[in-house]
Design a protein around this nucleic acid. Structure first.
Lengths: 347, 347
DNA sequence: TTGTACGCGTTATCAG
DNA sequence: CTGATAACGCGTACAA
């Protein structure tokens, strides 16, 4: 390989044009230290020197190397986010707002899918830890022991989201899934409905859905109702699974009066299927969803559902990390955001 | 600060427990080089030594520092992905599959939102470049000059997605938006519809929507039809905007026979609104969407739409980066994935 | 198959 | 306000 070729390859890999801080310093006639200061704490540099440096930076198209910065300063400006899947609107929404907030504070977000598996989450944590993130945002409070140990050991701020019922390792921003279930139970009870079913994710995959079921179940039991039928779907659940859930419920009890679906996607597809079959909603079958997604109030009848403030969760989670990093907040914290039952046409 | 406290703080920030390769080497009784080899090319190490090292790694909970690795090897194992917004299902889906594929190859994905702005994209590129990513995946082919220059200069593989009509800077994986428009025009023509409207994003924001409009318009013009009415909505467009688009179209021409919406979300909400108003679809008004989202075929009448293989786009984009990185593919490339018009009930 | 010496690009420390 | 020097933790090249 000729020297020229080698140089080209090298600079390509470096992908910074090969220009580094020394080059800027040389051109500006200062030391690298001053360049560094202009970049991180410009107020400490004399105006003239600063302008000289800034000029040199532009001229050379200098792009700092964050790896070198991390190595020297042990601050990565990275926040690692692990969610079950980006194809579920819920999590996509949450991440959207996390990214939005963190971008404003010049943090980068690296993202990973646990695919609803604690083990995959563990592997991701392990691999993300190599990047020395300044914060972690996880989903739920269910993790392997190793995950907990790794995280605790690393000392990185951790926010667990979507679960306000269980204790968090560090910080948490979530809502009470138990309460969601109870709210829906109340609704059904207030309408005098007694033959009730629940459709959600598999109990070994979706722990937060479990809590919603528990809430529903326990409140109904308090009212003296028989245990509700429960259908467990394998995650991820495409919208069409709502129809399958509906069919399984009706197979168990054709006279079922109400179904609580663990996600609006399921509820909507079930409701539309009822329309198609001529089953009257809510008279013949009441349907309640969870999440208040797009179209929940556009379909006919409009979907009764539990509104979850996904945006707020994302924003608060990001802020929790930021607050811990800038030192304005110190200890653990547990934030529970409110849910709202939206009574519309379907239940 | 006591020495102990100082040490604790330090190790917290390092978030790797402070254990480094030398520590592992020391415990295993080898050199760091051997540890390094065990991590990257285990086959070059004798079985016994390897086991010793692996044992030491476990015992110390050693977590490699990717910044140091990058600094020494100039490989970051990071791919930067920039999309307009994660709250649009399209992009969330695409990213989902990008992440899925890249995770399998132990690449991390950092993600950013351009918010449909070239300038914000430019700033993101600038900031991501500091991390020396091994690849970039962008959306569309519309970028600022600086973005192009920065990217070209860096030598990083770049994939532009969602636009198969325009020339790419390096590689591209997309579909023809022009063709999408033409396909829909054909459909309307075949049904003898002549008063046609288009509802999409603002022309200065959504360039790919522009192309769909062009395709529609030009094909209709070829058939001798008058220019179609065009409604421009400001991005991001919540689903409810479909109704606003519908209203604006009807305000311009109450006798409009067909509308092509630039996204299914808009089309679905408009269609449901038509149902509510008692406007018969497609007899009175034909509706065609774009994207084939969830519920497109669950509503009544089922939505006629253009199916876009978002998953395939994500997978191909990720693979394009990977192929370039492992050297199996060298030059630029332009991949166009096929679209499919799904004729269903609404048009 | 393993070890040694050095460089990667930046920031912290401390002196001036 | 600025500069010299020493880390930061790992991979590469080369030698053994």
């Amino acid at each position: 390989m000729s020297e020229a070729t080698e140089k080209r390859v090298r600079s390509r890999r470096l992908s910074g044009g090969g220009v580094k801080m020394v080059d800027v310093a040389r051109l500006a006639g200062t030391s690298t230290q001053t360049v560094s200061r202009v970049l991180s704490r410009p107020e400490l540099v004399a105006d003239d020197t600063r302008k000289l440096v800034e000029q040199a930076i532009r001229e050379l198209n200098y792009i700092p190397n964050s790896a070198a910065r991390l190595l020297a300063s042990s601050v990565s400006h990275i926040v690692a986010v692990i969610i079950p899947s980006l194809s579920a609107t819920v999590y996509a929404q949450e991440v959207h707002h996390i990214v939005r907030v963190l971008e404003e504070h010049s943090f980068s977000v690296v993202i990973g899918h646990s695919d609803y598996s604690e083990l995959r989450e563990e592997r991701l944590v392990q691999s993300f830890l190599e990047r020395r993130p300044d914060g972690f945002i996880l989903t739920g409070t269910q993790h392997t022991d190793l995950t907990r140990q790794l995280l605790r050991n690393s000392g990185v701020p951790v926010v667990e989201t979507f679960d306000g019922d269980n204790a968090a390792m560090d910080m948490s921003v979530g809502f009470s899934n138990l309460e969601a279930g109870r709210k829906v139970a109340e609704l059904f009870l207030s309408r005098g409905l007694t033959r009730i079913a629940y459709v959600g994710g598999r109990s070994d995959q979706d722990f937060r859905s479990n809590a919603r079921f528990e809430g529903l179940q326990s409140r109904l039991a308090e009212a003296g109702l028989a245990p509700v039928a429960r259908i467990e779907l394998t995650l991820p659940m495409p919208a069409g699974d709502g129809v399958r859930g509906l069919d399984q419920v009706l197979a168990i009890d054709p006279l079922t009066q109400a179904i609580f679906f663990s996600a609006d996607t399921l509820a909507i597809s079930a409701l539309l299927e009822c329309n198609r079959r001529g089953m009257r909603v809510p008279e013949q079958l009441a349907i309640c969803g969870f999440g208040n997604y797009d179209f929940a109030d556009a379909i006919v009848p409009a979907l009764t559902t539990v509104a979850v403030p996904f945006e707020q969760i994302g924003v608060l989670a990001a802020n929790a990390i930021l607050a811990r990093l800038d030192g304005s907040v110190q200890g653990p914290s547990q934030t529970v955001v409110p849910l709202q039952l939206l009574r519309r046409g379907s239940a």
